[in-house]
Structure formats: C-alpha cells, structure tokens
Amino acid sequence: MPIVNLWGKNFEIDKKMKNIYKPELASVTKVIEETEDIKTIRIKHDSNPKPGQFYEVSVMGIGEAPFGSASYSSEYVDLTIRAVGNLTNKLMNVKQGENLAVRGPYGNGFPMEKFKGKDIVIIGGGTGVAPVRTVIEYIEINREDYGEVDLFFGFRSPEEFLFKYDFDKWKEIFKFNITIDKPYEGWEGNVGFLNALLEKSEISPENKIVILVGPPIMIKVTVESLEKMGFSDDQIYVSLERMMQCGVGKCGHCMVGDKYVCKDGPVFCYETVKGMVD
C-alpha cells in the first residue's frame, strides 16, 4: 500500500506568495546632513506612503528597525534618522548610489481624508518633525482640501533644526511657529517649550484637527495645554513609538492593550490612546 503517494498532488510549496518579512533593495539617491547626528536618506521607492506610515529598514548583519517616512512622494521616500544605536550609526555611513534593504510602507497613517475641510494644527517636537513633514507635504499638494494650517515646531537649539531648507517655503504657505528650549547666541525667535508657545497663540479649537508627534513627555504636556485651550481629545491625533520587530502585527512586541502599534497605529486618536495603558 503506497500510502504516502496519496498525498501526491496535494503537496505544494507556495513560492509565489508574498513574503512579508523579506525586504527589497532600494537605491539611495541623496543623503542630506540635517544636524550633527541626524541625516535624511532619500531612497528611490514608488510605494507612495500615506502620511504617517513607516518602513522597516535593514542593515544586513545588524538587523532592521522601523522609521517613519518624512516625505510624501510617489517616487522617493525620505528617511530622517538620528544616530542612537548600532543600526542607526551604521546608517550614517550610507552613501548615495548604495542600496538599502527596505520593507513597507506599514501602519495606518493619518486619516487625511477625514480631516478634509478642517483647519490643521501640526505640532512636532525634535525628530517628531520628520513624520509630520509627510502631512505638510501632503497638504501642500492637496492645499484646497484644508483650511488654515498652523505649524508649531520645537527643537533643543537652532543646531538641531530639521528641514531648514523647507522653512522659507512653509513660511509662505502656512503659519509658521518655531521655538527652541533654551536661549542661544544669535537667536532672536521664541525660547521655551512648545506648549507655552501654543498657549500664547490663543488659537481656537473650532473646526480644528491637531497632529502631534514628539517625545512622550512633550505629548503629555502639549495635550494638557490643548485641553486647557478647549480642544477635546477626539480632535488630537498622535503617532506612538513602541518596540517593533516585524512591523506587520505578528511578533507581538508593540502590543498595547488590544492594539498593535505597527498595524492598528502608529497613528491614534488621542481619545483611544489615553485608555491604552500597560
């Protein structure tokens, strides 16, 4: 009885199926030195991410990590990266013409469709300015869909500014506000934390959506200020950071409550997030 042959035609290997863990090579077309330890690496990529989505970027031999897209384009993706660990330090050495292994885009992104017809307040602190730049570039292209746009950027010092080369353009199109943490020689602009600048602006919450990205402490104090100014939690959208490995909701690391930050986020309405506790 040739029992194993019974299997015969049923035995198959699905080689055509998409492998969610396998990155593809993408060529680096430009490297911009933003600050002493931050670079923007532009890769050729036609994946056309939604504002707020992210990519898993590999350095073979070290591993991979998630980075938010800092651009809105159908031809390229800007990855703005600070040297903080092994992988990011290695990424600082990447040169134009070399290849990076990349997967994505992943995550939900900001629901820009839902924001149509609203005034948008965009608040970014430090490297948090990178993911909100996708929103800014999206609005630049779809300007007529949105009302007034206020930008609020906070950096430690002028040396830490990201996307300086975009500032003039943004000042023309939007209301541009920027502040640094401490006084700095030669700086005549705002000094102090973002939330103080925000409160000073006295913008009204009427018909507004707030997009808020930055370090956890900044999010906390800024939300407090926004609430003081009359904003409700369902007007505020934040992008969360968590330990991620797979980026596609399998490995488990980024779970907070019943949400996967990689798959259900990283963008959440603050109303949802505030109930998400470890």
Binding site: Y21, M60, G61, G63, Q245, K250, C251, H253
Partner: peptide, 26 residues
C-alpha cells in the same frame, strides 16, 4: 505563545549571513 524577535546572524566575513527569528517572551 508565538512572539518572536527578528535578528541577524552574520557570517564572519560580515558581508553575508542569515536573518533569523527567535522565540521571544513578553
């Protein structure tokens, strides 16, 4: 419980190697 880590396991030449997943624990 199927959580995992994704890590690289480089060869000694540091140019080739394997990407592996290892079981992880919450």
């Amino acid at each position: 419980c199927g959580c995992f880590d994704v890590k690289d396991d480089p060869d000694l030449d540091f140019e080739s190697g394997k990407r592996i997943r290892l079981d992880a624990s919450c």
